[in-house]
Design a protein around this nucleic acid. Structure first.
Length: 688
RNA sequence: GCCAGUUUAGCUCAGUGGUAGAGCAACGGUUUUGUAAACCGUCGGUCGUCGGUUCAAAUCCGACAACUGGCUCCA
């Protein structure tokens, strides 16, 4: 999938901003007054708590300058600049000051002022302060004032001595903040701009009362237990060996590989039924590939550096360059233009400089692929194509490598080596709507299998201003494809949000957003329309009228990547996978030890059922040891073995097995054949 | 990459300048069983790495690495 367009977009965005002659940058966090009026009571409490936090911080460190302090999903934050570096050790002190302000039960007073008055107060340091602060103007508030549209009322909120530029709304009095707690500090860029100043962000949370606050922290603890990194270690699913393999490059342990392979099996079956064909491509490609696709140079930062090899033609070129340099009296070993001493002696001519530059970089560069689409495009190009071949659906679980920044790595959710459930569908314009609908149906089919209910479809479209800059300059194609996509979404009755100006440079896209156990948002799957890149590779097909045409391309990855999808599934199921996915599907446990001659017949009986299940590809383990049955059950439960078949003398005599399900306790006895059939059916149907 | 924090046995964690600890796991025995822990014993650590302070460093200081929570970015 060609998804890494943001770097490029940001570059363009930045350039565009530069050209705007210091116009104030738009503030993405700014809420309209209408939005604000809709704030819930809890949001008011949290927003008010942010003001109380600022009040407390100013009492401790009066030079602090505040930027934004909004309520967020689980609490609030306030961004500030301060000579003191605030650490969690300071929280107790800050919270004590906050409690004083809450106990004082000061009213939140709203004051409406003129723009001139506001600018004067910000200049004197009064806004976001406890009093005037000569020489310490409220610089962020001054900037925020420039973003309030002419004609919109400008208001302050005042609690005690603290006055903040704020449109509200707030609770009536500080005492209305029932219970709060500061949770963490972080760095945050002003207005989310990486190139802007970096502020300290203090996070906290607040609730109506102590009970609700305690419940929240209990929920957070519960979420931590579901964390895929924790469960992954407990269950032996994957390991990240940073010392020998590298950060962000998970090793799939045998049990994790069960999950990987079950997902691949599901994908292969589903795609086969939907008319896809499978392909396989190498992990590397020459530089030319990514120059042609347009990924270089914009994505170079997120790709592993290239491997340079001297192929025959490179060796010849190198020898030729060396001889040219030699002929010009510039033996490579002597002049070093970076050495000021030698520069005096050898003023390098432009020609020699160029020769030297080429000599130093001659070689063929191979990149580890960060996406599969260019390889698939070359498969399309490998044979002449007719309209009769379309739609051509090329599928591959492609292995990609991305050099993600170290701070962005996160368990399985964000990694540097990844396996994508990728496919590219090449089709005609007339076929597009049906193909796109079929892809959407496939998404929904998968989501049903996994019982995925909490997700959001995000439809990203272009913006007219971005045409020819952020987006390929094909206004009619944009409109046409976006209309087609929108129509499919509406007709399929899918709930979605439309996000303008977030499309890929080559076309609109639909992302599926989900949330990790600890509440972090991820794109789990994506579906993109591409009407630009196939042309860059000169891909064509021969149409019915003998004309050459460029196909449309749909990039789709409904199961995302193994890494992220499995990370998500681990948390979704809290490690308690349905039988078809469970790494430990069945364990046969005897009441009686194989070391005990008295249990010989029993163990033989148990082994029969093990053989029957294994013959049907069921993952079965055994526990015929001498531990007490309670201990054996506990071992299996802790391993999250899906189905336990407990066999004692009574079962053998009746020709049955006692079934126990993980987390659900004993389910009673069943005839042996019936138990086996039930297990096989449940796996085959991929029952939830 | 940026800010803050963390790093002690396979895992969870004690240990604030003076001889590295516990529980679980693993391993060896004993025990021979009816649905979430039978008993006894053994093994296991250059306290993330490197450097500094000190008579003495897991402990104090510095650099680096990895991880965690955020920011930016993203499947």
């Amino acid at each position: 999938m060609c998804i890494r367009v943001h770097l490029w977009l940001n570059t363009l965005k930045f350039m565009a901003e530069e050209n705007q002659n210091q116009q104030p940058a738009p503030n993405p966090e700014r809420k309209t007054l209408d939005d604000r009026a809709k704030m819930t009571e809890l949001e008011r409490i949290r927003h008010s708590c942010a003001h109380v936090l600022a009040t407390a911080i100013l009492r401790l460190w009066p030079d602090a300058q505040f930027a934004y302090g909004p309520p967020v999903e689980n609490g609030f934050y306030y961004d500030l600049e301060c000579s003191h570096r605030i650490s969690p050790d300071d929280f107790e002190k800050i919270e004590a000051e906050m409690k004083k302000e809450i106990k004082a039960n000061n009213p939140f007073e709203k004051l409406t002022v003129t723009r001139e008055q506001a600018i004067a107060d910000a200049s004197s340091g009064r806004l976001g302060g406890l009093g005037e602060r000569p020489g310490n103007a409220s610089k962020f508030k001054l900037d925020l004032l420039t973003q309030i549209p002419e004609g919109e009322a400008i208001s302050y909120y005042k609690n005690g001595d603290f006055i903040d530029l704020c449109a509200g709304p707030h609770v009536m009095r500080t005492g209305n903040i029932g219970a709060f707690k500061l949770t963490s500090v972080a760095a945050a860029y002003y207005k989310g701009d990486e190139k802007g100043p970096q502020l300290q962000r203090i996070y906290g949370t607040a609730f109506k009362n102590k009970t609700a606050l305690d419940e929240y922290f209990k929920m957070v603890e519960e979420a931590k237990r579901r964390d895929h990194r924790k469960i992954g270690a407990e269950m032996g699913l994957f390991a990240i060996d940073t010392e020998y393999v590298g950060p962000g490059m998970p090793l799939w342990l045998p049990k994790g590989t069960c999950l990987v392979e079950e997902l691949e099996k599901l994908a292969k079956e589903t795609e086969f039924a939907a008319g896809y064909v499978r392909v396989r491509t190498p992990h590397l490609a020459r530089e030319k590939m990514y120059k042609t696709s347009g990924h270089l140079p914009y994505y170079a930062d997120s790709m592993f550096p290239p491997i340079s090899v001297m192929e025959e033609e490179d060796k010849k070129r190198s020898a030729f360059l060396a001889s040219q340099l030699g002929a010009k009296g510039n033996a490579l070993s002597i002049a070093n233009e970076n050495d000021p001493g030698s520069e005096k002696t050898f003023a390098l001519s432009e020609e020699v400089r160029q020769l030297r530059g080429e000599f130093e970089t001659v070689g063929t560069r191979y990149y580890l692929k960060a996406m599969n689409c260019p390889h698939h495009h070359r498969i399309f190009a490998a044979e002449p194509r007719s309209y009769r071949d379309l739609p051509l659906r090329l599928a591959e679980y492609g292995t990609c490598y991305r050099y993600e920044q170290s701070g962005e790595l996160f368990g399985l959710m964000r990694v540097r080596s990844l396996n994508m459930n990728d496919a590219h569908i090449y089709c005609t314009e007339a076929q597009f709507a049906e193909e796109f609908r079929a892809v959407n149906d496939m998404y929904l089919k998968y989501f049903k299998i996994f019982g995925l209910e909490k997700y959001q479809m995000r439809f990203s479209t272009h913006s007219a201003e971005g045409l020819g800059k952020k987006y390929v300059n094909e206004p009619e194609l944009w409109k046409k494809t976006e209309d087609m996509v929108r129509k499919v979404l509406i007709e399929s009755g899918i709930n979605y949000v439309e996000v303008p100006n977030e499309a890929a440079f080559y076309g609109p896209k639909i992302d599926v957003q989900v949330w990790s156990a600890i509440g972090r948002e991820f794109t789990i799957a994506t579906n993109q329309v591409d009407f630009a890149v196939p042309a860059k590779f000169g891909l064509t097909y021969r149409d019915r009228d003998n004309s050459e045409k460029t196909p449309l391309c749909i990039h789709r990855a409904p199961l995302g990547t193994h890494e992220r999808f499995i990370g998500f599934l681990i948390e979704h199921y809290a490690g308690n996978f349905p039988l078809w996915l469970a790494p430990d599907q069945v364990r046969v446990i005897t009441i009686g030890s194989e070391d005990d001659p008295a249990s010989e017949a029993l163990v033989k009986y148990a082994k029969e059922i093990v053989q029957q299940l294994r013959a049907e590809q069921v993952r079965v383990s055994t526990d015929f040891g001498s531990n007490p049955i309670k201990a054996k059950i506990q071992d299996a439960e802790q391993l999250r073995v899906h189905t336990m078949l407990v066999i004692g003398g009574r079962d053998m005599d009746a020709g049955v097995v006692s079934v126990r399900l993980h987390g659900k306790g004993p389910q009673g006895a069943k005839p042996k054949a019936e138990a086996v059939a039930a297990i096989l059916a449940e796996i085959k149907e991929r029952r939830a």
